[in-house]
């Protein structure tokens, strides 16, 4: 039951992009097309889950030595290293997978959503299973927001807008309306 609550909470109620404001750059940058949204979403889910798994033992280690205040330094370094390593490995060993996901991987090295998830896991003192569920749900929430928004954006491109609102302003205001619709979920849990 607890796991389902975490999942619903992260996907819908506290959606990472639309109500927590993390990963905005990637959200606005890649949501131009449906196809790239799917690729980016899959890459984010993968990296988030892996990051949750590898930061868990590291935090336990920091806790053991009572230096948890070094978590930001340790986490970001490990995540950056890990993403670069995965990119190299799948480039060499699995070219088809690299073609589908690889190009998105470097873009999320310094994405705040990934670091955000690992810090949330620590703050909420989740165990390893809960951390993985939380990371997975957050990634799915990110993908969902990206997919929905790429649909909205393709409509914006077809519509007539005042000159000053073209481009980023229209995108942001559309995001505001999508975010408004997600507020409807806030009573769920």
């Amino acid at each position: 039951m607890g796991y389902i609550l975490i999942l619903v909470g992260t996907v819908l109620v506290n959606n990472i992009v639309l109500s927590q404001f993390m990963g905005i750059c990637a959200f606005l940058g890649v949501s131009k097309q449906m196809k790239s949204s799917v690729g980016m979403g899959a890459a984010v889910i993968f990296v988030m889950v892996c990051a949750a798994v590898i930061t868990y033992p590291i935090y336990k280690l920091l806790e053991h030595f009572e230096i948890t205040y070094l978590k930001t330094v340790a986490f970001i370094l490990v995540i950056a290293m890990f993403v670069q390593m995965v990119e190299m490995i799948i480039k060499k060993l699995m070219p088809p997978l690299y073609k589908a996901l690889g190009i998105y991987l470097p873009l999320i090295t310094t994405n705040c959503a990934v670091l955000g998830v690992t810090i949330t896991n620590v703050d909420e003192s989740y165990n390893i299973a809960q951390s993985v569920v939380n990371a997975f749900g957050t990634g799915v929430g990110f993908t969902l927001a990206l997919l929905l928004f790429s649909g909205v954006r393709s409509r914006i491109n077809d519509s007539k807008l005042p000159e000053t609102f073209k481009g980023v302003p229209a995108t942001l205001i559309a995001a505001s309306i999508v975010s408004l619709s997600f507020m409807g979920f806030s009573g769920l849990i």
Binding site: L18, S19, F21, T164, F165, G167, V168, P169, A170, T171, L172, I173, A175, S176, I177, S179, L180, M183
Partner: peptide, 16 residues
């Protein structure tokens, strides 16, 4: 949250 996106969008439009 929704207001954040809205205000930023309008601000950038004004700057434009």
């Amino acid at each position: 949250p929704a207001g954040g996106f809205f205000v930023l969008g309008c601000l950038i439009a004004v700057i434009n």
